[in-house]
Nucleic acid binder design. Structure first.
Length: 485
RNA sequence: CGGGACGUAGCCUAGGGGCUAAGGCGUCUGCUUUGGGAGCAGAAGAUCGGAGGUUCGAAUCCUCUCGUCCCGACCA
């Protein structure tokens, strides 16, 4: 495991792949387009998943599980939905050695099968709201895949809720968007912009799609989560009516929302450096690694000292690894654990032992701090908090530095770089521009610069006055344009 | 799905019709070391991505195919 990681400046894509493979987060699989999530990558996902799960339950949702296979006819009940997903479906045509009368598709998302059940479960306003979440795998036959960011099969959660009123459903849509924003910013330390998608970028079957958009280190945008207001589209498609408080039959109002293993990719791309993975302490499988440094004559004492510290920290609730493997030098271990992304390294040598201290080294900054051994637990906790905040602050500063108000088409082209249009060359960032609302303008910009409308930030729609940066017509929205993953 | 590049040991690379496929890193054994990817000695590890063809002979030439990366189209 002595391979060097390709520096970001040389090849950002290769850098990302090098980190994923060298930190043993995932591996390519024999199945085209699907990856194997290795234990270290899965542990990070579990830490993300557990926090979301806690927050979903806190907001009144329950987990359930629906089938992997969906009758093809279900997809076809919602016109926009099938049109959006048909090109990326995997279809099962045979079972038990016989051709199936009706083919199944492997779920690309579960609105249809879930709403086919909601039809039976909802009769009265007393049955509402129905707040269900599912942790599952889904499959979308992607033509071009990237580890974690876009694979044919991926893990996610999908919330599917049913409500009495449009108001309730709209509130739920925004409530869950806010849960996403909060968890991604605080737990993953990835700053995001909550906003609404344009018509051309919204979910197939939704009335409105809300999103949280993050900026990666190559200044491209990554959609980190979406929350959809589905109106009565699926209720109508599956004929789900309830008797309201006035005794009238009415279609149910719906939302759906999801985040996926793509978030692992977002964390990697946001925080890591040329030495390897950098993880927020909240997500790291281990709190710290102790690396003992000794000569033959000091080995026993240093190991004993290290062992005591490990036990002490463990008893305080930290997950601490003692790397006492004799076959690797300390230098090797430093590099190795840096590549794995462990937030804090604790060095213990004879000199430290004599002075009753240890050296704590921050993964994010490389800063070395001498800590009296009695204070190790308290300082480790403090360091974790500092690192968590520093990672978020650094990412936010980076994003803000590359978020620029742009008011004319010429400036947009200059910002994204006309000469780099049609290439993956990193240029630009987030262009914050006024927009008239027309899909034609989005298409024009995309054709010239590859940049798309990522979202209209929720908190920046007030006082819109001016002209669309693309066509010059009176503006109706403020939007973020960027190249994206 | 279109264009390009590339598949030789776990990883990187050499060899582009001819003897037993070469080297570096890593791995294993032993000794020696240990404050930023240590040293010495020895060992294991390859049907050259796969299939078919041309040839006396194929890692090498041809055809097909699979995979990875990049670009494009498509897209949660």
């Amino acid at each position: 495991m002595a391979e060097k990681i390709t520096p970001r400046e040389v090849d950002y894509s290769q850098w990302y792949i090098d980190i994923v493979l060298n930190a043993k987060l995932a591996d390519y699989s024999p199945v085209k387009g699907s990856m194997v999530i290795r234990p270290r990558g899965y542990a990070i996902w579990e830490n993300i998943r557990d926090e979301f799960d806690r927050r979903f339950k806190e907001t009144g949702h329950e987990n359930a599980y629906f089938p992997l296979l969906i009758p093809m006819s279900f997809l076809e009940k919602e016109a926009e939905h099938v049109e959006g997903f048909a090109p990326e479906l995997a279809v099962v045509t045979h079972g038990g050695g016989e051709k199936l009368e009706e083919p199944y598709c492997i779920r690309p998302t579960s609105e249809t099968i879930i709403w086919s059940m909601y039809r039976n479960w909802i009769q009265s306003w007393r049955d509402l709201p129905l707040l269900i979440n599912q942790w599952a795998n889904v499959m979308r036959w992607e033509k071009r895949t990237r580890l974690f960011l876009r694979t044919s099969e991926f893990l996610w959660q999908e919330g599917h809720t049913a409500h009495e009123t449009e108001q309730d459903a709209r509130e739920e849509t925004l409530r869950m968007l806010e849960v996403y924003r909060d968890v991604v910013e605080r737990h993953l330390a990835v700053p995001v912009i909550p906003g609404i998608k344009s018509e051309s970028e919204k979910f197939a079957g939704a009335v409105e799609t809300y999103t949280i958009e993050a900026m990666m280190q190559d200044r491209k945008a990554l959609q980190a989560g979406t929350s959809h207001f589905l109106g009565q589209n699926f209720a109508k498609a599956f004929d789900v009516k309830f008797q309201n408080r006035q005794g009238e039959l009415e279609y149910v109002w719906a939302t759906s929302w999801g985040v996926s293993t793509r978030l692992v990719g977002a964390v990697i791309m946001t925080h890591s450096d040329d030495k390897g993975l950098v993880l927020p302490p909240t997500l790291s499988p281990e709190s710290a690694v102790i690396i003992p440094i000794y000569r033959n004559d000091s080995k026993a004492a240093v190991l004993e000292f290290s062992n005591r510290l490990q036990q002490d920290l463990k008893s305080q609730g930290f997950r601490v690894i003692l790397d006492s493997d004799d076959s690797n030098s300390p230098g090797w271990k430093f590099a190795e654990w840096e590549m794995r992304g462990t937030p804090v390294r604790i060095e213990i040598g004879p000199r430290d032992m004599q002075s009753g201290q240890v050296i704590m080294v921050r993964r994010d900054s490389g800063e070395k701090i001498a800590v009296p051994v009695q204070e190790a637990g308290a300082r480790l906790k403090m360091l974790h908090e500092e690192i968590q905040h520093a990672l978020y602050a650094r990412a936010k500063t980076f994003r803000d530095e590359h978020t620029v108000p742009v008011s004319s088409f010429d400036d947009l082209i200059a910002f994204f770089g006309a000469e780099s249009a049609g290439t993956a060359e990193a240029k630009g960032g987030f262009a914050e521009s006024l927009w008239c609302g027309s899909a034609a303008c989005e298409a024009t910009l995309k054709e010239k610069t590859k940049a798309t409308l990522r979202c209209m930030p929720l908190d920046r729609q007030h006082g819109i006055a001016g002209h669309c940066a693309i066509c010059g017509a009176p503006a109706r929205h403020r939007a973020i344009f960027a190249r994206n993953y």
